[in-house]
């Protein structure tokens, strides 16, 4: 499991714009770099990030080579109802990680 750092407010007012910040540990190996022995290192990147809010996507991103290691993504959305936020990173070599956080809307 890769380590992640998430900033998600636990509570929000209805209609409030909430800011989410995510950081995940990942080498984001581009697939173009030669390693110490001169052979090209195979590509190993996160290809897709999705944030679901009660199972509906509120933010999605495609990632590509040349994005730095440990991708940092920040985005906002409008809090409308209490529920669960799911953060999903998927990539090469079957990489897949999901983190969830509860959000209570008053």
């Amino acid at each position: 499991m890769a380590r992640t750092l998430l900033r998600v407010p636990g509570t929000a007012q209805r209609g409030e714009v909430v800011e989410i910040r995510t950081l995940i540990q990942h080498p984001m190996e581009t697939g173009f770099r030669p390693g110490a022995d001169g052979t090209v290192q195979p590509r190993d990147i996160i290809r897709r990030f999705t944030c679901l809010y009660n199972n509906r996507p509120v933010f999605e991103a495609d990632l590509h080579p040349a994005i730095a290691a440990n991708p940092y993504l920040t985005f906002t959305f409008v809090a409308r109802e209490s529920g669960v936020l799911a953060f999903i990173w998927e990539g090469d070599n079957g990489f897949s990680q999901t983190e969830t956080r509860a959000l209570t809307v008053a």
């Binding site: 992640t4 750092l5 998430l6 900033r7 910040r21 950081l23 540990q25 290691a69 940092y72």
Partner: peptide, 13 residues
């Protein structure tokens, strides 16, 4: 910013 500093991932580790 502890949430943007990738070194903090290693501190958690």
């Amino acid at each position: 910013d502890d949430l943007a500093n990738p070194g903090m991932l290693h501190v958690a580790e």
